[in-house]
Structure formats: structure tokens, C-alpha cells
Design a protein around this nucleic acid. Structure first.
Length: 647
RNA sequence: GGCUUUGUAGUUUAAUCGGCAGAACGACUGACUUGUAAUCAGUUGGUGAGGGUUCAAAUCCCUCCGGAGCCUCCA
């Protein structure tokens, strides 16, 4: 007599089922429609096939194409079919990993001597769809470790053997679909025929198990969909996203450029980009002044000994730009890869009293880091960049309060710029690799706890990532995605008990004894380069009025108004606005078109009338003609709009 | 750094099998003197660099220098 099991649904209602009931049974009991659309079932957080018997009480959720996990079930199954197609077309290949990802799936393959490239895509896609159409089901089968290893030794796949060796006996399952067998822990759709469209997106080299020392396999990235139309829509979406690429817009709007002669990863900020950047700098400086920061300036190089003291030389010396030498004395200097050691020496320049802490030193500090050539990426990953850096030296009892104040600055910036989808990440040490870090476990515990408390206090929803800490301390990082969904770390707040030690920093306490300060490293933008890149992708180059490199452009309708228009430009400049003029001998329609493409927030059309009454005909970006207003009224209009944005 | 892929004028791009590098926009010159998303005409300018194969190379091969995607890395 089978016992009944209690199944908890997502709305927290509980239903009883006979033990051994399946996901399909659960779906059917809810509705026919749901059963028809069901792809898989989530059982206690794991994705299961709909035909897998459930024998214990469980919390479940039926997964459809509308759930990310439902998509992943389909993509996971698609990875199997892709592998089957590949084995069919290229006998003798060896399979590695083949998981679903955020947007599709991939399979890592050792193709032996065959060079798998774009020429192969069509053939594989065709085979894939043929196989999918045959309505393959995914059958789960328990295998012993011994059997599993024997199977893969037999077909000569050392990768899977290696994977299985790391698994527990009794915990190993194979999935059969059609003529294909794969080591797999499951999470499949019931039937391959629901997959109606598949496209191979690209290939890439990927080290086996992500280790640089291992062999490089060919990773095939692909997506699949239940409808052909959805694939088309997805491809369209990707194309739209590519239009927001900061590298494209940066070129179009003449914000920045790179030069092969100057060197890769070394951005050159053009005049318009520089205006944007300096506006950001001024904005943050104002915020920081209010918060009690003091600006400093330090040189771009420092003696090698400085970095030996800080520990950076030991950690990164080999993989950084190598020291430059003085010609006569042979002294060695490093291009500064960070500003903290310089700021430590500013702190140490005279004795400090507890009364002057927190001491907050800020610098828009340009640093140079050797990044592997393959890592460089537009403005988001470069070899020379400017951090909106500051270091807060404070008493241990001030840490939490100071940390929270920095969080508030980051959140204010995100609010003003409408970065709503950021992720707050607490970056902790890697417990399996303690040798990577300086300092005692006790200090690390304290630091990690302080960050968690500060984040809690501000109600931040955080994710914790092990192994992402800096070598000197844990961090709170703010991640924002670019147009294509790649996450970039922008703001960072880091807690550090190590550098004050290494630089022997001190303050005199109220007890007249010497104490060691704590250091907070923080950069709300992260770097101006990366921040600008993400800002461009978020705004598609349509910067808010206060930030726009040029806030308005004046368009005379004929050359005879040019002199007047230049005077008018001066008037607006005197009022504090960045205003361009278009004095070309072109029709106003063309000037408007190009100003729209140039993403000017406002266009001011000037002709006989406007010159006569001291007015401007205002046209707003993307909205069109706003009608005429007096010059003064327009200035006030701009001021009002800006103060509303920064409120 | 690695794998794959890619490099045509300032920009976007065309060139069937290896067979005269062609256009648009821009820039320059001139005409027109303009009222809310492209006025007309002319001129200018190019195969990333170097080597090889070939009667002939943008096209095939090699080296180097860039770009893109991913892997690794990221103080």
C-alpha cells in the first residue's frame, strides 16, 4: 500500500499525491493547459523530468518556457541533442561539459584534428532539427561508478572518466535519448519535439575544466526555442543590443578612441568624451566634498620599495608592467597600479590624532595595469584608467558608520543615473585557498562581518561570492550589466586591516597611546572608463541633460544669422551651459537630422523671428518642436530640468 | 596569454572561380540662401604591415600588428 506524499505548490498550498506520482501528475491536477506547457518540474530546488517519480514530501513548481529554469531544462536537453548531432557528423569526437547557461547552452568538444568553424554550423543545425523532430525522450538510468567509467574508457573519452572519478558511487546517472547516452544528473524536457528552432551562435576555445594548464576544447554556443518566431525575435533583440555597444556609440559620438600607435587598451578621450567625463568628475567631487573628503594629487609612479611594502609587488609584480629605471642610479619605479600606497604615505606624513579621524583622502587617480591582451574590451577593461579613488582612515569603532556612508554615495549615484538593476556582491575570501590572502583569519572574520552588517543596515540584497576578495580584504562590489548582459563591477568598497599594518600607520588615541587605523578603499564609479562604458550602454548615448557633452546645438536657418548665433552661444555659455552651433551652409532639415543622430538633448532653431525678439525655437530630442521661448526662459527651463534630475 | 573569427577610403560597405578595387556618407571647392529628420554639381581619398605562391592576389599561404567573441586572468 503506497503511502501518500505531501506536495507543496508555489502558492504554499499543499496537496496529497500517491507516492511515486510524477511531475506530470502534479501538473495535470492543476490544469490541462499547464500540463500541456510543462517542460519540467522543480523538486526541492532541483530540476526533474516530468516522468520521474516523486516519493517523498516536496516543494515543487511546474516549469514552463516562461521560467528561466524551464528554459534551462530545454537548453540542457538541447545540449544532449547537439552532442548527438555532432557525434553523428564527426565520429570519434570526445565530449566534455554541456550545460545550459543564461541565454542558451554550450557543449565543450574535443574535435581531435578537425577544425570546427562557421562552415560547419549549418550542417549541424540541420542535423539537430532532424533529431529533435524524431521525438526523442530522455530516459534516466542509474549506473555504478565502475560501469560508468568502463563505458567511457571503452569509447576512449578521458574527460568523462575524469568527471566520473570525482563523483560518488550511487550518485551517477546516464541519460539516454535516441542513440545517444550522456553522463548527466538530469533536468530534461519530456520530448525533443518541442524544440522547433536552434542556432549555433559562435564557437570559442575553452580550457578543459577552466584550467589554463589543461587542453583547450572547442566550445559551441547555441540557443534553441520552442518556436521559430522566438528565435527570430531573440536575434533581433541581440542586434538591437549591439547598437547600444559603447564602442560603437563612442565612435559615432566621438567620445573616445584607441590608437594602434599609442597602444592597445590605452583609451584616448576625445573632446566630447572628456566633457562627459569631467562632468561626472565634478558631480562626484561635489558629493564627496559634502561628505568630508579632501582631494589630493599624487604622482603616476612610485618606487618599487613602496609596492614591496604594500605587498602588491609580491602579489602582482610578475604580471604587471615592469619597473622603469633611472639612467644613473638604477633606481626602480613602477607605474602606479593603484593609489592606496601613495595615500598611506599622505596619512603617514605627520602624526594623527583620533580627533581627526575619519581622514578621507580622495583622488581621481590614473593607474596602469598590465592586462592580458585577450582581456581588453572597449572602455570596460583597459590598461590605463582613472579610478574615482578614496581612502578612509578611521578608528575601528568608526568602520561600520563610514562603510554605510559610502554605500549611500554609491546608491545616490545609481539613483541619479537610473541604474536600477544592479547587483550588490559581497566578495569574500576563498576558504580553499587561504594562502592567497594577507592577514589573520580573525581580522578577516571581523572585516567580513562588518561588511555584512553594513549591507544589512542599508537593506541591500546581496549575493556572496567566495574567492572574489582582494588579497588584503573583503569587498562590497556593485555590478551592473552592459547591453549584452555581461556583468561589470562598477562601485567597490573594500575593508582593509593589512595596509595600515604594513605601512605602520598610527594615530594617538584619547588614552594617549598609539593605535592602528582601519582603511576603507572605495570607488563608487569603479573607474571613469568602465563607468562611462556602462553609462553609454544604458543610455544608448542619450545622456541626461546635466551630463550630455553638448546640451544644445543652435541651428541658424541661413548663413546670414551665423554672427548672431555665435553671440547667442556665448550667452548660453555664460549661463553655464555647453552649447554647440552648426554654422554649415546646409538646410535646417539636415541640421536637425544630424543633431538628432548626434543625440543633442535640445536643438535651437534661429531665423528672422527669433533674432528679432530674442527668442529660440526649441526642439527636444526625440520629442520634436516645443515652440518658441525667450532666451532667458529657455535658460531657466534648462536649469529647472537639471535640478530636478539631481534632486 | 589561449582558441575561433575578422581586417577594403575618415565612416558604412561592394567586388561570382584568383582577373580593371566600385558606391554612399564625410571632408574639400563651387552653386543655391534655405523654417523642424538628408539641396545640387565637381574634387579628394582605400585593400592593416611585411614576406611568399601565381602571368595575375582584397581574395590562397606564412610572420607580425589590430578588432570581435569566448576561456583564463582582473590589486
Amino acid at each position: 500500500m503506497p503511502e501518500n506524499i505531501k506536495i507543496t505548490l508555489p502558492d504554499n498550498s499543499v496537496r496529497e499525491f500517491a507516492s511515486g506520482s510524477t511531475g506530470m501528475d502534479v501538473a495535470m491536477s492543476i490544469s490541462q493547459g499547464l500540463a500541456r506547457n510543462a517542460l519540467a518540474i522543480e523538486v526541492n530546488g532541483e530540476t526533474w523530468e516530468l516522468n520521474r517519480p516523486i516519493t517523498t514530501d516536496a516543494s515543487v513548481a511546474i516549469l514552463t518556457w516562461r521560467d528561466q529554469k524551464g528554459k534551462e531544462a530545454m537548453w540542457h536537453s538541447s545540449a544532449h541533442i547537439l552532442a548527438e548531432a555532432l557525434e553523428d557528423l564527426y565520429p570519434g569526437i570526445k565530449l566534455g561539459f554541456g550545460p545550459p547557461i543564461k541565454n542558451g547552452f554550450y557543449y565543450d568538444i574535443d574535435f581531435g584534428d578537425h577544425k570546427f568553424g562557421e562552415a560547419d554550423f549549418k550542417k549541424v543545425e540541420k542535423k539537430f532539427l532532424e533529431l529533435a523532430k524524431t521525438a526523442e525522450t530522455f530516459e534516466r538510468k542509474d549506473v555504478s561508478k565502475e560501469e560508468a567509467i568502463a563505458h567511457y574508457k571503452n569509447i576512449g573519452n578521458e574527460y568523462k572518466v575524469e568527471l566520473i572519478e570525482g563523483l560518488e558511487d550511487g550518485d551517477i546517472t546516464f541519460y539516454h535519448s535516441g542513440n545517444f547516452v550522456d553522463l548527466c544528473k538530469g533536468g530534461h524536457i519530456p520530448n525533443s519535439k518541442v524544440i522547433k528552432a536552434m542556432k549555433i551562435m559562435n564557437t570559442a576555445g575553452a580550457y578543459w575544466r577552466g584550467d589554463e594548464k589543461n587542453k583547450m576544447l572547442t566550445r559551441i554556443y547555441a540557443v534553441s526555442f520552442p518556436k521559430k518566431k522566438e528565435l527570430d525575435e531573440y536575434l533581433l533583440l541581440l542586434e538591437e543590443a549591439k547598437k547600444r555597444d559603447h564602442r560603437k556609440i563612442g565612435k559615432e559620438l566621438e567620445l573616445f578612441t584607441f590608437s594602434e600607435k599609442v597602444g592597445m587598451g590605452l583609451p584616448l578621450w576625445l573632446p566630447r568624451g572628456t566633457r562627459l567625463r569631467e562632468t561626472l568628475v565634478d558631480f562626484l567631487k561635489k558629493v564627496q566634498e559634502k561628505e568630508g573628503y579632501q582631494q589630493v594629487v599624487t604622482p603616476h609612479i612610485g618606487k618599487k620599495e613602496l609596492y614591496q611594502t604594500s605587498g602588491h609587488w609580491e602579489k602582482y609584480g610578475e604580471d604587471s608592467f615592469q619597473p622603469i629605471k633611472t639612467p644613473s642610479e638604477g633606481e626602480e619605479f613602477l607605474l602606479k597600479p593603484m593609489n592606496c600606497p601613495h595615500h598611506c604615505e599622505i596619512y603617514a606624513s605627520r602624526p594623527r590624532s583620533y580627533k581627526e579621524l575619519p581622514f578621507r583622502v580622495a583622488e581621481f587617480g590614473t593607474v596602469y595595469r598590465y592586462e592580458q591582451s585577450g582581456e581588453l574590451h572597449g572602455l570596460t577593461r583597459v590598461r590605463g584608467f582613472t579610478q574615482d579613488d578614496a581612502h578612509i582612515f578611521c578608528r575601528p569603532d568608526q568602520v561600520k558608520e563610514e562603510f554605510i556612508k559610502v554605500i549611500d554615495i554609491v546608491l545616490y549615484i545609481f539613483k541619479v543615473l537610473k541604474f536600477e538593476n544592479y547587483k550588490a556582491q559581497i566578495s569574500l575570501r576563498d576558504p580553499e585557498n587561504p594562502g592567497k590572502y594577507f592577514g589573520s583569519p580573525e581580522q578577516w572574520d571581523a572585516a567580513e562581518k562588518a561588511i555584512e552588517e553594513a549591507a544589512d543596515e542599508r537593506g541591500l540584497i546581496t549575493v556572496k561570492e567566495l574567492g572574489e576578495a582582494a588579497f588584503y580584504g573583503p569587498k562590497l562590489d556593485f555590478m551592473v550589466s552592459d547591453a549584452l548582459g555581461r556583468e561589470w563591477q562598477l562601485g567597490t568598497i573594500q575593508l582593509d586591516y593589512q595596509l595600515p599594518d604594513r605601512f605602520e600607520l598610527e594615530f594617538v588615541g584619547s588614552d594617549n597611546q598609539k593605535h592602528r587605523p582601519v582603511m576603507i578603499h572605495r570607488a563608487p564609479f569603479g573607474s571613469l572608463e568602465r563607468f562611462t562604458a556602462v553609462l553609454i550602454e544604458h543610455s544608448a548615448g542619450e545622456f541626461p541633460l546635466w551630463l550630455a557633452p553638448s546640451q544644445a546645438i543652435i541651428l541658424p536657418i541661413a548663413e546670414k544669422f551665423n554672427d548672431y548665433v555665435v553671440d547667442l552661444q556665448d550667452q548660453f555659455r555664460d549661463a553655464g551651459f555647453r552649447v554647440d552651433v552648426d554654422l554649415r551652409n546646409e538646410k535646417v532639415g539636415k541640421k536637425i537630422r544630424e543633431a538628432e543622430i548626434g543625440k543633442y538633448p535640445y536643438m535651437l532653431i534661429i531665423g528672422e523671428q527669433e533674432m528679432a525678439n530674442g527668442s529660440v525655437s526649441v526642439r527636444k530630442r526625440k520629442e520634436g518642436d516645443l515652440g518658441a521661448m525667450s532666451n532667458d526662459a529657455f535658460i531657466q527651463y534648462l536649469k529647472d530640468e537639471i535640478s530636478e534630475m539631481l534632486a
